[in-house]
Lab assay of single mutants.
Amino acid sequence: GPIITTQVTIPKDLAGSIIGKGGQRIKQIRHESGASIKIDEPLEGSEDRIITITGTQDQIQNAQYLLQNSVKQY
């Protein structure tokens, strides 16, 4: 399918649970989903961080599912 980009906003407090120790968790999510995932640095004074996910519809759905699971375990 076509490559698309979607953005998800997360509270910055949850960023740690998604990134994992030394970036292990986010690497695993990238690997498992096949999507490209970029977590922006939090904006000055903002409570949120923006996650940019790029890939096919399937890859993005996979990545979103894995991201949600990471947050739930936290």
Score class of each variant (00 low, 15 high):
Ile18Trp: 06
Ile51Lys: 00
Gln24Ile: 15
His31Met: 14
Thr9Leu: 02
Thr6His: 03
Ile29Asn: 02
Arg49Lys: 09
Arg25Ala: 14
Gln68Cys: 02
Ala15Met: 14
Ala35Thr: 04
Gly16Cys: 08
Ser17Gln: 14
Leu14Arg: 12
Asp58Glu: 11
Ile10Ala: 09
Gln68Tyr: 03
Leu43Trp: 04
Gly1Ile: 15
Ser70Gly: 13
Ile50Leu: 12
Ala63Trp: 01
Asp48Tyr: 05
Arg30His: 11
Leu66Cys: 07
Gly22Cys: 11
Ile18Asn: 05
Thr5Gln: 03
Ser36Asn: 02
Arg49Cys: 12
Ala63Ser: 04
Pro42Ala: 06
Leu43Lys: 13
Arg49Ala: 13
Lys12Glu: 04
Lys12Ile: 13
Ile60His: 02
Ile50Met: 15
Ile29Phe: 05
Arg30Thr: 10
Ile50Gln: 14
Ile39Tyr: 08
Gly34Thr: 02
Glu32Thr: 08
Thr6Pro: 00
Asp40Pro: 06
Ile53Val: 08
Arg25Ile: 14
Gln28Trp: 12
Lys72Gly: 15
Ile19Thr: 12
Arg25Asn: 05
Tyr74Gln: 15
Lys72Trp: 02
Lys27Ala: 09
Pro11Ile: 04
Pro2Asp: 15
Lys72Asn: 12
Gln57Thr: 08
Ile26Tyr: 04
Gly22Ala: 07
Pro42Ile: 13
Tyr65Met: 11
Ser46Gln: 14
Glu32Arg: 05
Gln57Tyr: 09
Ser33Gly: 01
Arg30Asn: 13
Asp48Trp: 03
Glu47Asn: 11
Ala15Leu: 09
Lys38Ser: 10
Lys12Met: 07
Asn69Ile: 14
Gly1Leu: 03
Asn69Ser: 15
Gly16Ser: 14
Ile50Ala: 12
Lys38Tyr: 05
Asp13Leu: 07
Gln68Lys: 08
Gly20Leu: 07
Val71Tyr: 03
Ile4Arg: 01
Glu47Cys: 04
Val8His: 03
Gln68Met: 03
Ile19His: 11
Val71Thr: 08
Ile60Cys: 06
Thr56Ile: 03
Glu32Phe: 01
Ile26Trp: 07
Glu32Met: 15
Thr54Phe: 02
Ile39Trp: 12
Thr6Glu: 14
Asp40Tyr: 03
Ile4Phe: 06
Ile18Met: 11
Tyr65Asn: 15
Pro42Ser: 04
Ser36Val: 14
Thr54Asn: 06
Arg30Lys: 06
Gln64Pro: 00
Ser17Glu: 10
Val71Ser: 08
Gly45Phe: 10
Ile19Gly: 05
Gln64Thr: 10
Glu32His: 03
Asn62Glu: 15
Leu43Ser: 11
Thr9Val: 04
Ile37Cys: 06
His31Glu: 14
Pro2Asn: 11
Ser36Phe: 07
Thr52Ser: 15
Ser70Thr: 09
Ile51Leu: 08
Gly1Gln: 01
Thr54Ile: 07
Glu32Ala: 05
Gly1Val: 04
Pro11Asn: 10
Asp13Phe: 04
Gln24Tyr: 10
Gln59Gly: 03
Thr56Cys: 05
Glu32Ile: 06
Ile37His: 00
Ile3Ser: 07
Pro42Thr: 09
Ile3Tyr: 04
Glu41Leu: 08
Asp13Asn: 14
Gln57Asn: 12
Thr52Gln: 15
Asp13His: 14
Tyr74Asp: 13
Tyr74Val: 13
Gly20Lys: 13
Gly22Asp: 07
Gln59Met: 02
Leu67Pro: 00
Gln68Val: 02
Ile3Pro: 02
Gly55Phe: 00
Tyr65Gly: 15
Thr9Tyr: 01
Ser36Met: 15
Ser36Gly: 11
Leu43Asn: 14
Ser46Thr: 07
Gly23Ile: 06
Ala35Asn: 00
Ala63Pro: 00
Pro42Lys: 13
Lys12Ala: 10
Asp48Val: 11
Ile29Lys: 02
Ile29Met: 15
Gln59Ser: 12
Ser33Arg: 01
Gln73Met: 13
Thr6Asp: 06
Lys27Tyr: 09
Gly20Ile: 15
Ala63Val: 04
Gln61Val: 11
Lys27Pro: 06
Gly22Pro: 15
Gln59Lys: 09
Lys21Cys: 05
Asp40Lys: 07
Arg30Pro: 03
Glu44Phe: 05
Gln61Trp: 02
Ile39Ala: 08
Lys12Cys: 05
Ile19Phe: 07
Gly55Ile: 00
Gln59Thr: 04
Leu67Gln: 01
Gln61Ser: 12
Arg25Tyr: 04
Tyr74Leu: 15
Gln57His: 13
Gln57Cys: 02
Lys21Thr: 13
Leu67Ser: 01
Gln73Asn: 13
Pro11Ala: 06
Glu44Thr: 07
Ser70Tyr: 05
Thr9His: 02
Thr54Arg: 12
Leu66Trp: 11
Gln59Leu: 01
Asp58His: 08
Thr56Trp: 03
Ile4Tyr: 03
Glu41Gly: 08
Lys27Arg: 12
Lys21Ile: 09
Thr52Asp: 08
Gln73Tyr: 13
Glu41Pro: 12
Arg30Gly: 11
Asn69Tyr: 03
Ile4Ser: 06
Asp40Asn: 09
Thr54Pro: 00
Gln73Trp: 15
Val8Gln: 06
Gly45Gln: 13
Ile53Asp: 00
Ile26Cys: 13
Thr54Lys: 11
Ala35Trp: 00
Gln28Met: 12
Ile10Lys: 01
Leu14Asn: 08
His31Gly: 12
Asn69Lys: 07
Lys38Ile: 08
Glu32Leu: 03
Ile3Gly: 05
Thr52Ala: 11
Arg30Glu: 14
Ala15Val: 09
Pro11Gln: 06
Val71Gln: 12
Gln64Asp: 12
Ile51Val: 14
Ser36Ala: 10
Thr5Ile: 02
Leu66Tyr: 06
Leu67Phe: 09
Leu67Asp: 00
Gln68Ile: 03
Arg49Asn: 14
Asp48Thr: 10
Ser46Tyr: 12
Gly22Asn: 10
Gln57Leu: 03
Ile53Tyr: 04
Ser33Tyr: 01
Ala35Gln: 00
Pro2Glu: 15
Ala15Trp: 02
Gln7Asn: 01
Gln68Arg: 08
Thr52Trp: 10
Ile39Asp: 04
Tyr74Thr: 15
Gln57Glu: 11
Ile18Pro: 10
Gly22Trp: 11
Val71Leu: 10
Glu47Trp: 04
Gln7Lys: 12
Ile50Gly: 10
Ile53Arg: 00
Arg25Leu: 11
Lys38His: 12
Ala35Ser: 09
Gly34Glu: 05
Ser17Lys: 12
Ile26Glu: 06
Gln73Ser: 14
Leu14Ser: 14
Gly20Asn: 09
Gly55His: 00
Ser70Pro: 14
Thr5Arg: 01
Gln28His: 05
Ile10Cys: 04
